[in-house]
């Protein structure tokens, strides 16, 4: 939590019963969304693809008209007075939308000029931002030559040059390599420390958990849950998990093993995480004769203290000559909350 509320009680962003229905669609893309973002807060909208996150950002950044409801930014009615609101907000879009007719530096200075920043001021700010975002060396190159990560950094720099009250980041790290992602996360952390209010959308759990003061989980245009990442993960049903790496005996039937594990007292549910390499093949027939026994990943969702369940699990495995190669005791992650609320179906 930012803990700074009370200094300024006016919310940075306030959304009340927001509805957006696109023409010729049966369902509302945004379906009665309400939330507030406090000044200085990093607020995350988390949801699967097509959940209505980008539409919400589109409305809050004055790009899309709302069907009904109200939205205010720093007290300004976004729907009635979009021009005043535009002076106070900035957006980093999901896809690069840099001005390719201009150099990177000019992308910053012209943007500042659109927002009425004077010449000397905008040149100085542009130089400082290019330095801060590690782009000073390529400031006068062609935008077309920029990599995805560089373009993303330039877009964030551009969004900051007119010193907005609220910064909207629409899936800021989608499609970036790990280095670029870490760089962007660090910059977001710095902005938070400087008190910039940020509303970001993401479907990356780690991003939401690490960056956000509060997270709203959205699906089908509705808010399903809203709290700090810690409180959200604390609230889910299965409180703890046991992640096991097991090498079953050669003649073992994996399905039987899994169902026996499920029968252990304190185990609520057994699952093979999607990442498990052996999961698909070994599910029904077990390892074929002659093959090296494969290690399988098994996750047990517990309803009791892991320390109490573990001995029984170890006993069961050793009784069946299965080698336990790794154990991790985990508490529920934001991903569990997310799947729990939005279901497992593909979008």
């Amino acid at each position: 939590m930012s803990g700074t509320s009370g200094v300024d009680d006016a919310p940075a962003v306030e959304v009340v019963d927001l509805v957006k229905r696109y023409p010729k669609r049966e369902d509302n893309a945004v379906d009665g969304l309400s939330f507030t973002v406090r000044p200085g807060e990093v607020f995350g909208l988390l949801g699967p693809n097509g959940a209505g996150k980008s539409t919400t950002v589109g409305i809050l950044t004055t790009r899309l008209p709302a069907t009904s409801g109200a939205a205010r930014l720093s007290g300004i009615d976004l729907l009635r007075d979009p021009v005043s609101a535009r002076a106070r907000l900035a957006v980093v879009a999901q896809r690069p939308n840099l001005d390719r007719s201009l150099t990177p530096r000019q992308n910053l200075t012209f943007h500042a000029a659109y927002h009425g920043v004077g010449r000397a001021d905008r040149n100085e700010r542009a130089a400082a931002l290019l330095e801060q975002f590690g782009l000073a060396d390529q400031a006068d190159a062609k935008v077309d030559w920029y990599s995805g990560g560089m373009a993303q950094r330039l877009m964030i720099a551009r969004s900051l040059i007119h010193e907005p009250d609220v910064l909207f980041l629409d899936e800021p790290t989608t499609g970036l390599d790990p280095q670029a992602r870490l760089f962007v996360w660090d910059r977001i952390g710095e902005l938070r420390d400087r008190g910039v209010t940020i509303l970001l959308t993401t479907h990356d759990m780690n991003e939401a958990a690490d960056l956000c003061d509060r997270v709203g989980i959205v699906d089908h245009g509705k808010l399903l849950a809203l709290d700090t990442p810690e409180a959200l993960t604390r609230g889910i049903r299965a409180q703890a998990v046991l992640d096991l790496s097991v090498t079953p005996a050669a003649q073992e039937h994996l399905a039987t093993l899994l169902s026996d594990l499920g029968a252990v007292e304190g185990v609520e549910r057994v699952e093979q995480p999607a990442a498990s390499p052996a999961a698909a093949g070994a599910q029904d027939q077990g390892p074929a004769a002659g093959d090296l026994p494969a290690t399988v990943q098994i996750r047990l969702y517990l309803s009791a203290d892991p320390a109490l369940v573990l001995p029984a699990v170890v006993g069961l495995l050793s009784g069946r000559s299965a080698a336990l190669t790794n154990v991790r005791i985990g508490t529920g992650s934001l991903e569990d909350v997310f799947i729990d609320l939005t279901g497992r179906g593909l979008r």
Binding site: S84, H115, G116, A128, L129, Q132
Partner: peptide, 24 residues
Amino acid sequence: MRTVAARTAGTEPVRSVGDSARRA
């Protein structure tokens, strides 16, 4: 290195919508 400071309240003159639209 100078970082761009967050908006410092009151230092920028408040502009009317018409004025900001003309400049933009």
